[in-house]
Nucleic acid binder design. Structure first.
Length: 279
DNA sequence: AAGTGGACCTGCTAGC
DNA sequence: TGCTAGCAGGTCCACT
């Protein structure tokens, strides 16, 4: 029951427990082995707080914990590479990879994260302290109305990194990780090695649509389950059954049958079709 | 400022 | 069968 958390998986997770945990009263909080950052507060201070509406920003979730009317405290949660949240009233006993548990009046919220690149960080609000710092440099949400070809074109101007790496950096547009960046570039017919600043406005427009398209599709399929991603209900996703290039090295391109290539960019694998993605 | 590479950590699989 | 190398969904940070 672990994961592969790009935007669709994080959003699917959010939707799978947000309404069930809303209004719950915090009974206790326990941390296991260290995650990416320390929690940043005494776990006891959150007891008695009420859970507000769970929000998503990029691949982060914000869990508001209203300890009093004027306090907008909460927890910023990131799933890292291998994290998964589960929420329920009778979860199995905690295992060796369960490093965060929030017991509430409506169920137990648990983060399972073998690699521990994930994080649970307390903040007085989303706009203060460590949460604010982590969120500050995030780019636009892919479905923001301001997310247009013109915006992308403008933000990529002068950038010499490859378009693939520019997408992954997350400071221009959030949400597409390694899988969906590869998929979106394929759908837009763009060579992942192309310098970001050399994309024409027209290509930027196509790329925006492709990113939105692929994320929408993945969302509709409940996300990807590469290893065994499951949402907080335990339902798995099916997007991985339909990837066009990701994870398909040497297999035939679904459009032109040319073998899909795998290259390394910024220490990450990139999959693409050398024919369908010429420049 | 922008680009690059290292760091964090565990588990799984392919290959010998 | 058993060991080892290589790879995996992310992103921060230090350095050039």
């Amino acid at each position: 029951m672990h994961t592969m958390p790009e935007l669709p998986e994080v959003e699917v997770t959010r939707q799978s427990f947000a309404s069930r945990i809303l209004g719950a009263k915090v009974l206790s909080l326990r941390m296991g082995k260290p995650l990416r950052w320390p929690l940043g507060c005494d776990p006891g201070r959150l007891e008695g707080a009420r859970v507000g509406e769970v929000l998503r920003r990029g691949k982060y979730l914000w869990l508001p914990l209203l300890s009093s009317p004027e306090r907008r405290e909460g927890l910023l949660i990131h799933l890292g590479m291998s994290g998964a949240l589960t929420f329920g009233q009778s979860l199995p006993p905690a295992g060796p990879h369960d490093h965060f548990e929030l017991d509430t009046s409506q169920g137990l919220l648990r983060l399972t994260d073998p690699r521990r690149f994930g994080a649970v960080v307390w903040g007085e609000s989303m706009q203060k302290g460590l949460p604010a710092r982590l969120l500050a440099s995030l780019g636009l949400e892919p479905f923001d109305v301001a997310m247009t070809g013109a915006y992308l074109h403008e933000r990529l101007r002068g950038r010499r990194v490859s378009i693939k790496q520019a997408l992954l950096a997350g400071d221009i547009v959030v949400g597409a990780g390694n899988i969906y960046a590869c998929e979106a570039l394929f759908m837009a017919g763009i060579d992942p090695r192309l310098a970001a600043g050399r994309l024409s406005l027209r290509r930027c427009e196509r790329l925006v649509l492709a990113i939105q398209d692929v994320l929408r599709q993945a969302l509709a399929l409940g996300g990807s389950s590469l290893k065994d991603f499951k949402d907080a209900h335990g339902a798995q996703g099916y997007f991985q059954l339909s990837t066009r290039v990701y994870g398909r090295e040497s297999e035939a391109c679904r459009v032109c049958a040319t073998p899909v290539r795998r290259i390394t960019q910024g220490q990450r694998s990139t999959f693409f079709c050398p024919i369908c993605q010429k420049k």
